[in-house]
Nucleic acid binder design. Structure first.
Lengths: 345, 345
DNA sequence: TATTAGCACTCCGAACGGATGAGTGCTAAC
DNA sequence: GTTAGCACTCATCCGTTCGGAGTGCTAATA
């Protein structure tokens, strides 16, 4: 009775158990199921089946004489094969005010917020990694005697800037030339594409001011790294208190910390962007997550694209018994909307 | 026996009670005090005195037959008159790496972090309100056909920027003129000083491009407001879990939320900047705080100044039984250090 | 052979009831 | 005014009890 396959009936029962548990958050017993499902079986029969399901690892008992709750393996199966998405979410979300904005970062912030209030889970949104963005415009200008302001605009109108101390005095004319040089050479290039060869070439062209070119490149590189490269916005952190299994002081503290030190979330972002396939939506259940402090959570991530290869990640973090259908639906619809908003142009 | 003044002895006893409670976090009984203090009194005498102190409102009993804990009024008295500051903290802090940085915001972030790890409380640091900062430099430049990039640098090298859609095409020469116009008129002025009169005057000078001037001013105003004007950095939020009286799920959730929605902290900032006097350090105990969600906390704030009138606020949020001496000392030393760092130049 | 009814059993959680001990308030003596 | 002494209160701990939910197993049933 142990190593058999999951037959039709077992699947139905497992499905019922999970659905019920997602709703109530309480261990579910055989009697409940025997009424809940359409297949008319007595609780005794259900019990036998449940014993099998437990042996196979799909469900588990918090303690003897308690009902069953889904195991990670159970959730996994559910998410992989038994889930029906709620497409109606898409319509609802259309109403949510996600509007295109001149500056992407501002919009992404609002995405995080909207998602958090809408789902009742914690959310994170990573801005497209800047180093893959293309440079739109570079501008050097003199602020005062000793200081030069370097401004770099990349796609999405993300603007980086840095103040450079220029010891040697540079006259306005050379500044103009440098601007021209930098723009013609670097515009349209992604930041990570800038090669050493290009830099030396530019230095050569700059002649006596080659030093300045180096400084500017350094400043650019610096201003990119400065913000830890990957900008991440979070929202709804305090939603975790809505789920007793996460509100435990120790776990909560760890989670809060993770959200504050956004850097820890980069692993999640990287993993999502790397392991992408199909719909671009990924579900991490419990231990599957790359972030240590989320071992008792489930995380659903999606990749979005704002045209021209600017890709970022959206993540929703909640308890394992999160409403996967709703979350996946919501993420699908929101990435779709982002796609639409930024495709036109 | 009720409406008498606090005599010497009562003060000593109250002092002892508070000190003891700050250390242990447990209600303190008469026996403890009778041994703790130098005035050799039996527990019975202490009990009588304690009854008086309670009647006067300086201490209270969590329940009959428990020891006493300080009331808000008790803490207040302690902070106002009985506290001896630990000046040695100053030396310790010197070791902490607070270094001047080109961009203030980055440094303030690190201040928040250093304070949080050093004190084990939650911290917030507000950046100087931008609108009181003076403009150092303005630069308009053409990004492409239809778009102009406006960059404004204010004191502290805080850099704001905005993209302006320019319908009418402006040639390079007028752009130069506009730059000159803006810089000569606005540099050295604080953002809030810009008056309508100045704007109209500039528009007149700009001639046919008066519209552009308006746009730029709008853009500047916008980019200031955009970031909710007041930038606030927080750190160590999860420290609140170290204090059981705050770790309670409901309170914790509220607090976390306050730190996430930094906007709520502006009241604290405003109150601090307004009610400033003497040392510039303020202590809010329990209900005294202007922020609703911190009713069960104490908050200590300080005003710092980065030369030339750029003033901001540092706040430390912890349980009522926080180590006021250490916190006040730390804040004093750190504001002092900031002052030093930014005075030289 | 699969399903079901029935029953003994397990375990959690809430409720109860002493002990224990810390701490108080009060009184009477010093 | 101070103190010793005592009765009293109350939180906390711990063992017990008890009911309920749910299980596993067995034997009867279709």
């Amino acid at each position: 009775m142990a190593d058999q396959e999951l037959d039709e009936r077992k699947i139905k029962i497992l499905h019922a158990i999970i659905r019920n548990y997602l709703e109530t958050g309480e261990p579910v017993g055989s009697r409940t199921i025997s009424k809940y499902t359409d297949l008319n079986l007595s609780s005794a029969t259900i019990r036998n089946e449940m014993a099998d399901l437990e042996e196979m690892g799909y469900i588990l008992q918090p303690h003897t004489s308690a009902g069953r709750i889904p195991s990670d393996k159970g959730y996994r199966l559910y998410v992989d094969t038994m889930m029906e998405e709620k497409d109606r979410e898409i319509e609802e979300l259309k109403e949510l005010m996600i509007e295109r904005e001149e500056k992407v970062d501002r919009m992404l912030k609002s995405v995080a917020k909207v998602l958090a209030t809408n789902t009742n889970y914690a959310t994170m949104v990573s801005a497209p990694a800047i180093r893959t963005n293309k440079i739109k415009f570079i501008q050097l200008s003199r602020m005062n005697e000793g200081q030069i302001l370097a401004v770099v605009v990349v796609e999405g109108n993300v603007i980086k800037n840095n103040v450079i101390d220029s010891d040697g005095s540079i006259d306005d004319e050379t500044l103009l030339k440098l601007n021209l040089l930098l723009n013609t050479n670097l515009c349209g290039k992604a930041l990570e594409e800038i090669s050493l060869a290009m830099i030396t070439a530019m230095k050569q062209q700059a002649g006596i001011h080659s030093e300045m070119v180096g400084n500017v490149i350094d400043a650019i590189a610096d201003s990119i790294k400065s913000e830890e490269d990957l900008q991440i916005y979070t929202s709804g952190t305090n939603n975790i208190f809505k789920y007793p299994e996460l509100a435990d002081s120790r776990k909560a503290s760890d989670l809060i910390n993770t959200f504050e030190e956004k850097q820890m979330l980069t692993e999640l972002v990287n993993d999502t962007l790397a392991g992408e396939e199909g719909s671009g939506i990924q579900v991490y259940i419990g231990d599957e997550t790359p972030v240590q402090s989320m071992k008792d959570c489930s995380v659903v991530t999606a990749t979005y694209e704002l045209g021209e290869g600017m890709r970022g990640t959206i993540g929703i973090i909640g308890p394992k018994r999160m409403d996967y259908e709703k979350v996946v639906g919501t993420l699908k619809s929101i990435t779709h909307r982002l796609d639409e908003l930024y495709k036109k142009k």
